[in-house]
Amino acid sequence: MLRKTFETELQQLKDEVLVLGSMAEQAILNSVEALKKRDLKASEKILEDDRAINKKRFDIENQLMILIATQQPMAHDLRLLASTMEIISELERMGDYAKGIANINIRMGDQPLLKPLIDIPRMAQKDVDMLHRALTAFVNEDVEAARVIPAEDDEVDALYNQVYRELMMFVIQDPKSIERANWLLWVAHNLERVADRVTNICERTIFIATGEMAEIKSTDDDFWKNQS
């Protein structure tokens, strides 16, 4: 087969993206778990792990630059490499969201949670589930899956809506709870953004496989409309 070495390098690249993806997945789950248990040490560890995520992203970026410079990719290969550049940036940002949640936990110090966390862990679980399948679709260039996954963003948005309404109730009942409610709202917001970035990954996967560059409709606009 012609270009066997290049094929092997592309496969290795995809494997590396999966590694970065699983680091982001773990960070998201761990950040919410630490918050739920109010485990500050675990949150400190997430901040440390985020540096590893950033480093991994730069390593992959470097690998991509070398492939572009040395292999002069065209057509599908070019779309794959350009899109992978985008995808690793999305994954790195997901790591930042997890870091944000860890920072919130640390800043909350010894204050108790405003309420037991139920929907927030569900959001995290749904995010990770979507992300995992989006990355599998990316590796297999599975257009069907990539077209279906973004619709599940609605579930995350619904949970966010629910958390939002619930927290507003707390604030109305007791205005002193505003700071603690705000912290949790930020956590939920970060988790809501993760699902949006999963949609971006799906868009890239469709582009790699078909060359079609199209934005998948976001339901976020509807969410904001409902708030007004």
Partner: peptide, 14 residues
């Protein structure tokens, strides 16, 4: 960037 024919794709990607 996005050839329509598989043979073109195979050729330009080497």
């Amino acid at each position: 960037t996005n050839p329509k024919d598989k043979r073109t794709e195979d050729y330009v990607t080497g």
